[in-house]
Design a protein around this nucleic acid. Structure first.
Lengths: 152, 152
DNA sequence: GTATATGCAAAGGGTTTGCACGGTT
DNA sequence: AACCGTGCAAACCCTTTGCATATAC
C-alpha cells in the first residue's frame, strides 16, 4: 500500500500538482470503495479526523482523473462513479434492478470494439464503458430486456 | 407519418394514457431530432403555437418511455438523450471530443452481449448502450484512448 | 515567500413535485 | 361529471465557482 502511495505521489508531482492529505484520503477512499460516487467518497473520508470538504472531493477527483489515477463511468442516472485505474482493464455491468455493479475483464469487449474501430473508425474508451441490464440474480431466466420494464 | 401517429396513439391508449397535443408534439420532436435532450425537445416544441412546459416534457418522456415508444441513453455528463424506439435496434457511439452521436446496428454488439449472458448471466439492455470514445474524424489515427486525454 | 489547495457559502444547471386549473374521456 | 394531464412556481438534488484563508513547495 505504501508502494502504491508513492506511485500516486509521483504521478501527481510529475504533473505539477501538490501532495495534500485530502488528495491522499480521496485516493484511498476511491481504492477502498471500488465504485463510488463523490458523495460516497465524502462519507468515507469524513470518518477520518481531518475530513474533506465536498467541493474538494470534486476538485480532487478532477485532478486525479487528469493525471490518470482514477476514471469514472456513468453508472446510473445520478452521480458518476469513480474507480482507480487498474492494471487489468475492465468494463462495468450495472444492474438496473438491484443497482449492483460488476466488473468484468474487457477481452471479449475489445474484440467487438476493435471491429468497430476498423469498420467505423470509432475508437471506444473502454474504461468508460458501463452496460446496463439485469444481473444474474435479477435476470432470472429472462433473455430480453424490455426498455420500460425497469426504471432505467 | 399519419400511420405512425395512429400507432403511437394506440400504444398510449392501450396503456391507459390519454392522447394530448403535448404528447404528440413531444413524440414528433423526439422523432425529428433523433437524439435529443429534454431541453432540445422543449426548444423544438416551443416553436409551435401551443408550446409545452418543460415539466410536461419531462413527464411526457417518462410516459413515452413507460409505454415503450422512446428510450434514452446517457450520452454525456449532462442530460440524457432520448430517441424513438426503432425497428432496427442500435447502439450509440458518442464522441468525447466533438460530441457527435452515431448510431450503429447492434448485430456485432449482440454477439458480445450474448456471450456475456451465457458466461456471466448478465443480460444487457442493448437500447441503453452508449459507448464513449473518439469518432473517425477526431480519432485521426489513434488506436488507444487515454482516459484523461479528454474531458470524459 | 509564492503559488496552489482548501473550506465555506453562494450560485448554477437539470430534474422533480404540489397544487389549482384545464382538457380528455 | 370524473379523472387525468398541464402549467406554474417552488423545492430539490448534484455540481461548480468566487473568495479569503491555509498549506505545500
Amino acid at each position: 500500500m505504501n508502494q502504491k502511495t508513492e506511485a500516486w505521489d509521483r504521478r501527481l508531482r510529475s504533473a505539477g500538482f501538490r501532495i495534500t492529505p485530502q488528495r491522499q484520503l480521496v485516493l484511498e477512499a476511491v481504492t477502498t470503495l471500488r465504485h463510488s460516487t463523490p458523495e460516497d467518497i465524502l462519507l468515507e473520508v469524513q470518518q477520518t479526523a481531518s475530513g474533506v470538504n465536498l467541493s474538494t472531493v470534486y476538485r480532487t477527483l478532477e485532478v486525479l482523473e487528469q493525471v490518470g489515477l482514477v476514471t469514472h463511468a456513468h453508472i446510473d442516472h445520478g452521480s458518476p462513479t469513480y474507480h482507480v485505474v487498474e492494471e487489468a482493464p475492465h468494463i462495468h455491468l450495472v444492474c438496473s434492478r438491484c443497482q449492483a455493479v460488476e466488473s468484468v475483464e474487457s477481452d471479449d469487449f475489445e474484440k467487438f470494439s476493435s471491429k468497430l474501430e476498423s469498420q467505423k473508425g470509432f475508437v471506444v474508451n473502454i474504461a468508460h464503458v458501463a452496460l446496463h441490464g439485469l444481473c444474474k440474480n435479477c435476470a432470472d431466466g429472462r433473455t430480453l430486456i424490455i426498455d420500460n420494464e425497469f426504471d432505467i
